[in-house]
Design a protein around this nucleic acid. Structure first.
Lengths: 222, 222
DNA sequence: AAGCTGCTTAAGGAGTTCTTCAGAAGCATG
DNA sequence: CATGCTTCTGAAGAACTCCTTAAGCAGCTT
């Protein structure tokens, strides 16, 4: 799935971005209105490009809406270098962030990097440094060695690797990974995280706690 | 002669299959209408892929028509795991049989196997370590010794060997292997797995339980 | 330092899978 | 079409996995 949705109210900028991305052979749709974005099915696209400075400050709401049902990558745009909004957006599960004005080439490079990233359904292998997930076999390899995982641990790690670099909310993980028949308890998630960290050995510290929010999976240098 | 004819009324599925096969460098023609297939010279192709669930139940008629003048290999597709049609089709001279939905890779593998050795009808076999499945004779050899299997056991094992290394979901197996006329019960699958493990002797432990998901067929070291 | 939030350990229990067995359904034979 | 045989199914209980809960400690924030 390589369709991209651009949510941008500035018509001039939108046309510029559209031209750039379509020129590179991408299939891009454009929505100028925040309300329309709120009613769009997130999973219809392989990537969202979302301007946070929409009228009525819809930006963060749209991000929240997307994250309620999907883990599609979201690339955020903002007109000003506002640290608070940027932090908040990454906490809410944004995957990348660009400050306007930006160089068209840079946007294209980041979009292509995100689209190249392992796709949720059709990829049967996820890799991040020495951590390899064989999705078809449901097996985890840490530095080439097979490590036994339970169902929850494997699903959890798959989410982390898919959205590496992005902060993921605790509650979002609870809703997706834990047994839906019981009311998910955040303490339960703690336990799974703890065990997963242990099993990941040297990569255990890649699961970074984002205090008050959730976790972020990232490498050493990041 | 490596031309392939696909007889399939479902346009979406047909396009998917066409893409898959043509992507592998094969020369594939497509016919959506059963009547047109009935007037096609069988010998113009090196392989037929024939959907049995065509409108007006032409499927078996087409197979009969082909067999009247040619022994070209015919790979059959069916939307449902209908044992009676399957048996009837093999009696009429079908060479292989796949139940929809199938893995694209599996279809390609079988088509290529057919094209590589056109007279392979009685040699087609699946092997994994000391486990050998003779698909034409429907016989199982364990370390060279013949082991009696029932229909369900043989089909089950064939699926495992074809997709060895991958975790296969319980429900997926239930849908394909058990009697479709009754609501498949997962407990029933347990029983077949249990018996199959026993018959496989030393290879019984190759059928690994993937807790909460299904099973995975794999060798010792894997 | 106080008050949260998050981490770890250990134990209980809910849910899943395995095995056995008996009966039903399908199939071939006479 | 009745008979006997094979195969499939479904129920029951045992065995097992691992998910969850609880409790105490550690770490962060103010």
């Amino acid at each position: 799935m390589s369709r991209v949705l651009l949510v941008e109210d500035d018509e001039k900028l939108a046309e510029q971005v559209l031209g750039q991305l379509r020129g590179a052979g991408l299939d891009v749709d454009w929505v100028a209105d925040g309300l329309e974005a709120l009613t769009t099915d997130p999973s219809k696209y392989g990537l969202w490009i979302l301007d946070l400075m929409l009228p009525n400050a819809y930006g963060l709401d749209i991000l929240k809406h997307v994250r309620e049902s999907s883990d599609v990558p979201v690339l955020l745009l903002s007109a000003q270098n506002d640290t608070k909004i940027k932090v908040r957006a990454l906490e809410l599960g944004g995957d990348d962030y660009m400050t306007k004005p930006f160089w068209p080439d840079e946007l294209l490079a980041r979009v292509q990097a995100r689209l190249r990233r392992p796709d949720a359904v059709h990829e049967d292998r996820l890799e991040y440094e020495g951590v390899v997930l064989d999705l078809a076999a449901r097996q985890l390899l840490v530095d080439g060695a097979l490590v036994e995982t339970t169902r929850v641990e494997f699903d959890l790690l798959a989410l982390f690797v898919r959205r590496h670099g992005a902060a993921i909310e605790r509650q979002w993980l609870v809703d997706r990974v834990l047994d839906p028949n019981r009311d998910g308890n955040e303490r339960t998630l703690d336990v799974h995280i703890s065990r997963l960290r242990k099993k990941l050995g040297p990569y255990g510290k890649c699961i970074v706690t984002v205090w008050g929010v959730g976790y972020r999976f990232e490498g050493e240098g990041a």
